[in-house]
Design a binder for these strands. Structure first.
Lengths: 126, 126
DNA sequence: GACCAAGTTTACGTTAACGTAAACGTTGGG
DNA sequence: CCCAACGTTTACGTTAACGTAAACTTGGTC
């Protein structure tokens, strides 16, 4: 089962970024595509990494933060101490994300308010 | 009822930022504190603006974006066209925020997974 | 009156995350 | 054979959001 690969422009278009961005992520050690001669060949795994990085960006994470989060998935952690400290990190990230989620919910509530005010304003002018 | 005011260092400490940051926000036109002689005096309204700006920052908004959102609350919009376009902007912001919220929920689900894996790992080593 | 803490202006420095441009390789089609 | 599309490296430029430092003022206090 020959695993699919992607070209750089293919991924750039899919994710709405430039090829420069994707090369930049490689420069920073965030991804490590294969090479075919000189050309980069991206695996589905590479593609997912990019996707996760961009997801992180959308909620204001730095590239480093995204990578740290992504790397929590792969099991380089073997012994008990590492597992414990990883669980600690997970708790921290969770707390951070929950705070962000609450911020967003407050903003959404604010938008509801604004919209209600707008509609009342329009009603008067009708 | 004499309304309370705040000094710059007071607010800086409350929000965990430097005074430089607060002055920078003023430089960019995000806040307009009164002056008493040379000193800046911040009103409760100023304080809230800073709070909202920092809330925006936490979810990755730029300062400009935060201000745009904050300014949606004050009614400078009088006529129907302005109200309609404001409602449109509200919809856009809402969509954006909902996307971010979903991103966060996905990440939280991912963290649950990681933690479960950790705990299974620890169980084996017990 | 000397001093200190808190505030002020001015100005240059810094970091992240790319943008932009130049100069070059390669490969499939007409 | 040529060129147009796609890719590559190298390198300098850019913007946002402050940090940092220097030099000055001001209000209280010992």
């Amino acid at each position: 089962m020959a695993t699919r690969t992607y070209s750089i422009s293919e991924l750039a278009e899919e994710f709405g970024v430039t090829t420069r961005t994707i090369r930049f992520y490689e420069e920073k050690g965030l991804i490590h595509p294969r090479r075919e001669g000189q050309r980069r060949l991206y695996s589905p795994a590479d593609r997912v990494r990019i996707k996760l990085i961009l997801r992180g960006k959308r909620i204001g994470m730095s590239l480093q933060e995204s990578v740290e989060l992504i790397d929590m998935y792969d099991p380089e952690h073997n012994n008990r101490d590492q597992l414990h400290s990883l669980i600690g990190t997970v708790q921290d990230k969770r707390a951070h994300l929950q705070r962000q989620k609450q911020d967003i919910e407050e903003m959404l509530a604010g938008l509801d308010e604004v919209q209600a005010l707008c509609e009342r304003g329009l009603e008067g002018k009708q």
